[in-house]
């Protein structure tokens, strides 16, 4: 039996009468990298804050590292590293001072040595005395992660850690996350990026406060029942507008010089495509594989419909 790091049921939270998270349940096994996906304002941050005791759920229950999220937030805080969406270390302290502060608050035995070690691990040795506020986005993110893992937490909650960070820094960041997971740390990470979602062991997709899909990336794609055609050729904009009107086409999305045409009803979609091929020989059609992004955009537009 696998150990469970996070297990929550029926979490609900509203602000001023507006429901932000609705009846959300999650189960994250220990040592796993769990991707938390969803559009802006979907309740990802609120859920993460409920997990680490920064927000009190209106209803629901659950545990985080075996501690009750409603009553044992002190214990949870000691063993969870929470990386906020916005940089929240002290900009007027140097890298070293920030890390020493964190080490002291968590009661790490030798704060100076722990900070020095963290600086080395992060590759920040030359910058130890630089003020955190002067760092670029990528370095800030690296420092924030370093501060999170310094007290050796068992669970990392990362809220859009790579927003606004360049691709190279993002890649290095994910290598570090995988290293940490290999050491047995559980990671819950929220993101907008589909390539990052595919790096997770498991993902959960949440929109408008509701969990819409979960599983491995391939499972989520398979569950969606979506099939996709890829089309290239002249005047795709016009073609896209035409296809949008047809029954059986759920989604038309441009990807560079191609269009991805997708639908949940395979037969209806195929019929539309066959008709289009016959009517106009200028375009080149091939069978494609729906991407995670296609699936999420579909999920999101359906969820929106439910609300309207």
């Amino acid at each position: 039996m696998t150990e469970i790091a996070i297990e929550v049921e029926g979490l609900t939270k509203s602000f001023d009468g507006r429901i932000v998270v609705r009846d959300l349940s999650l189960k994250v096994p220990k040592g796993e990298i769990y991707g938390f996906l969803g559009p802006n304002g979907s309740g990802k941050t609120t859920t993460i804050r409920m997990l680490c005791g920064l927000l009190t759920p209106d209803s629901g229950r659950g545990t985080c590292l075996g501690y009750d999220i409603l009553t044992q937030s002190d214990e949870i805080k000691r063993e969870v590293g929470y990386m906020t969406q916005r940089f929240s270390l002290y900009e007027d302290l140097s890298i070293r001072e920030n890390l020493e502060f964190v080490a002291r608050v968590y009661g790490v035995p030798n704060p100076r040595a722990a900070a020095r070690e963290a600086i080395q691990r992060l590759g920040l040795s030359g910058r130890a005395n630089q003020l955190a506020g002067e760092l670029s986005g990528g370095w800030k993110q690296r420092l924030a992660l370093g501060a999170c893992i310094l007290p050796s937490p068992r669970l990392l909650l990362l809220d859009e850690p790579t927003a606004g960070v360049d691709p190279k820094a993002r890649r290095e960041f994910w290598e570090e996350i995988h290293r940490l997971a290999a050491e047995g740390i559980t990671v819950l990470v929220s993101t907008h990026y589909m390539d990052e979602a595919e790096r997770c062991h498991e993902i959960a997709y949440i929109a408008f406060g509701e969990l819409l899909a979960r599983g491995t990336a391939n499972e989520v794609i398979a569950q969606s029942g979506l099939s996709t055609w890829v089309v290239s050729g002249p005047d795709l904009q016009h073609l896209a507008e035409e296809l949008h009107k047809r029954k059986g086409v759920d989604m038309v999305a441009p990807f560079g010089t191609e269009l991805h045409v997708s639908g949940r009803d395979k037969r209806a979609l195929n019929a539309v495509i066959a008709e289009a091929k016959k009517a106009d020989g200028a375009h080149h059609w091939t069978r494609g594989q729906p991407s995670l992004e296609d699936v999420f955009i579909l999920l999101m537009s359906n969820a929106k419909d439910n609300y309207a």
Binding site: Y82, T84, S88, L89, V102, Y106
Partner: peptide, 13 residues
């Protein structure tokens, strides 16, 4: 205002 409170509150202090 600086956003450091969120981090501070998530620490065991």
């Amino acid at each position: 205002e600086r956003g450091t409170m969120e981090s501070l509150l998530s620490m065991p202090i």
